[in-house]
Amino acid sequence: MDFEPSSEARELAGLTRDLAGSGRPLWPALAEAGVLAAALPKRAGGEGYGLAEQCAILIELGRHAAGVPYLSSIVVAASAIAEFGTDEQVATWAAPAGRGELIAPSEEAARIAGSAWIRGRLVIGAAAYQLGVAERALEMTAAYARERVQFERPIGSFQAVSQRLADAWIDVEALRLTVWQAAGRPEPAEAATAGFWAAEAGHRVLHTAVHVHGGVGIDMDYPLHRYFLAAEEHEFLIGGATAQLLDLAEVLP
């Protein structure tokens, strides 16, 4: 399996990154630039890309802890309606969602596509967003550990700190591997594996980030608290690590 993002995924990720850092209202900017519709099927006005490209977008949104409904409206609901719905349903819900005119309804999508399909896409998408959150939080923490001096030494040079950062790096890379595996093969086992690492690694990495930062890690004027809350939200969204292991046990031979 090729774990390298496609050129289209890299292009969409770069565009999302630029828009997220532009200071403009993000949701209408994503719609205007065609990012919302890009990974939808062509019958919904999209470019026909797929889950891998959606995951690339979600990773960048996670890196900015962006509070936009791309996961629920586009990756889950609009994609389900575009894949399984009638032409009328696509025209009513999926296509307008891709233009940013409405938030596609999850209830309608679940009725059309079935709860198993919806659950799989939700877990994989949440894992991709969580990857962006954890990746950026670790970068911030590593930079802080290089700059923060205690006892005339950067705190990152202390063994206890460096070990926790090394463990966090391993967690992020494990999450990255399982996200791209699930994006390329969105089967129940792959989704549950990515979901487990999203919950487990997200929890550990963000707690490490807050602990290494100390008091500034929970300062409302410092951005790390937004990443901590985003990681907790997506951990709870998919039910936590134990729920993912139980799902995995159901599908393993």
Rank of each mutant, 00 (worst) to 15 (best):
M1Q: 09
E11T: 13
R17L: 10
A29W: 02
A29N: 01
L30S: 03
A31S: 13
A33V: 04
A33I: 01
A37D: 07
A37V: 00
A39L: 04
L40S: 06
G46H: 12
E47K: 14
Y49E: 07
L51Y: 08
A56Q: 09
A56W: 03
L58H: 10
I59E: 15
I59G: 02
R63Q: 12
R63F: 06
V68Y: 01
S73H: 01
V75G: 10
I81T: 00
I81F: 11
F84R: 15
G85V: 04
V90Y: 07
A94H: 00
A94S: 15
A95F: 10
A104K: 05
I112L: 01
I112Y: 02
W117R: 02
R119S: 15
V123C: 03
L131T: 09
G132A: 04
G132H: 06
A134I: 05
R136D: 01
L138A: 10
A142S: 14
R146N: 13
E152R: 13
P154M: 12
G156M: 11
S157I: 14
S157M: 12
Q159C: 06
V161I: 14
S162K: 13
V172W: 05
E173S: 12
L177P: 01
A191P: 11
G195H: 10
F196M: 11
A198C: 03
G202S: 12
H207T: 10
V212T: 04
V212D: 06
V212P: 08
H213Y: 14
H213K: 04
G214S: 01
I218A: 12
D219E: 09
P223F: 05
P223S: 03
P223Q: 03
F228T: 06
A231Y: 06
A231D: 08
E233F: 11
E235D: 10
E235A: 03
E235R: 15
L237K: 15
G239E: 08
G239L: 04
L246F: 01
V251T: 08
L252S: 15
